[in-house]
């Protein structure tokens, strides 16, 4: 399966989903759907989180699985946490500015 692109190749902005299709009955739904937070992370981060949850959140088990030391794996998790927090902040700022614009329109 192809990898889901997350950002626009032209301007680097986050992409949205425009159309969804059922592979069985071919029903299509069209609209503007935002990608869930996890899907907006880089593929390596998504894969790390996937395996981390499978390992019951054990960094020791992840270190063993990847053949890396405990602090190296923990640093990778810390970096993902920072990226998630930054994405949250970015999203909140965006939501806030959208709310302000819609308030002004209503006035």
């Amino acid at each position: 399966m192809k990898l889901l692109p997350r950002v626009c190749p032209a301007c680097d902005e986050d992409l949205q989903v425009k159309r969804l299709r059922c592979p069985t009955c071919e029903t299509e739904v069209e609209g503007a759907f935002g990608l869930p937070g996890l899907a907006r992370l880089p593929v390596e981060d998504q894969a790390f989180i996937w395996e981390f949850v499978k390992a019951s959140g054990s960094l020791k088990a992840m270190a063993k699985l990847l053949g890396l030391s405990y602090p190296t794996v923990r640093n990778r998790l810390d970096d993902i946490i920072i990226r998630i927090k930054n994405a949250d902040t970015q999203r909140n700022t965006l939501d806030h500015s959208v709310d302000e614009r819609s308030d002004k329109t209503h006035e």
Binding site: Q46, W50, G67
Partner: peptide, 12 residues
């Protein structure tokens, strides 16, 4: 997805 995920997080 397991093979794909393992490939994506393989250390250098």
């Amino acid at each position: 997805m397991s093979d794909d995920t393992m490939h994506a997080i393989q250390p250098p």
